[in-house]
Amino acid sequence: MPANFWSRTLGLSWEFGTMRPRERDTLSVWQVVELARHPDRPYSLDYIKRMAPDFVELHGDRISHDDPALVAGLGTWHGRTTVFFGHQKGRTLAERVRRNWGMMHPEGYRKALRIARQAVKFGFPIVSLVDTPGAFPGAAAEERGIAAAIAGAIMEWFETPVPIVAAVIGEGGSGGALGMAVADRVLMLENSTYSVASPEAAASIVWRDNARKVEAADQLQLTSRDLLAMGVVEEVVPEPEGGAHVDYEGTAVALENALWRHLQPLLTMPVDELLQHRYERFRYIDSLIAAHPDFGPKVEPKV
């Protein structure tokens, strides 16, 4: 498929975000996937500690467990207390095991919702950083109701009356990522991915063979430029030459500036309007596609 398929189809200019057509055009989709998974890539805490040096991490879902795959807490950001969420993968093998490679259990979503309710109570805005291969595909997660935890989280974010901005900073895999990415604005770092399933999972579903991951990745349209063109994310934050792991400082500053730029207008928005915008953002997220003549009227007349 031609690289500029979406731009051509939808008549969008490739540069309409902040992306620049640079060496990205020479990277294959699989190379982007590998950059998004780079072991040296900055993780959520690398950004959060730079954005809010006084960050205090909170733990536990107040029901049964704490989920180390999700970091949650408060910090001062631009002079205002802000709630931060972020998937954390872990640097060393021991830490990776402890944090379960950033794959959340049901407790993680329950912890996030508990702290989100606190944010509502005190009127703190929410920043969510997404970097997960997906929710944990294990028997324990199933027994404790991972599906219902994600479903409940997705529904509750729509009823959380404080501004939420999210950014995909590495891997955005499947429902596990979406459970933490229902927000008023969703941004993406340049070399991150966001898809319906990881390339491996998609290959094992479509081919029944997860070795076909490269072909699957090519078809899934999971790079930041694809998602920007589809209208699924608002902005792509450029990374330094070579990728985010080359310059933690520079990437963090770029991400912070973009997040703040998007959060600022939300802070003064009336709550009803904020929730209505969030609803419409996802309700008509495929509106570019819905413009197809066979698709029928976008909005039904009121009954």
Binding site: A151, I154, M155, F158, E159, S174, G175, L178, V182, Y194, S195, V196, A197, A202, I205, V206, A216, Q219, L220, Q221, L222, D226, L227, M230, V232, R278, Y279, F282, R283, I285, D286, I289
Partner: peptide, 24 residues
Amino acid sequence: GGARMQEGVLALMQLAKVNAALGR
């Protein structure tokens, strides 16, 4: 079986879309 792979991330967005409407 879940979300449709052949519609990519837009199929994933349907989870949020239907849950938003379901919340209402």
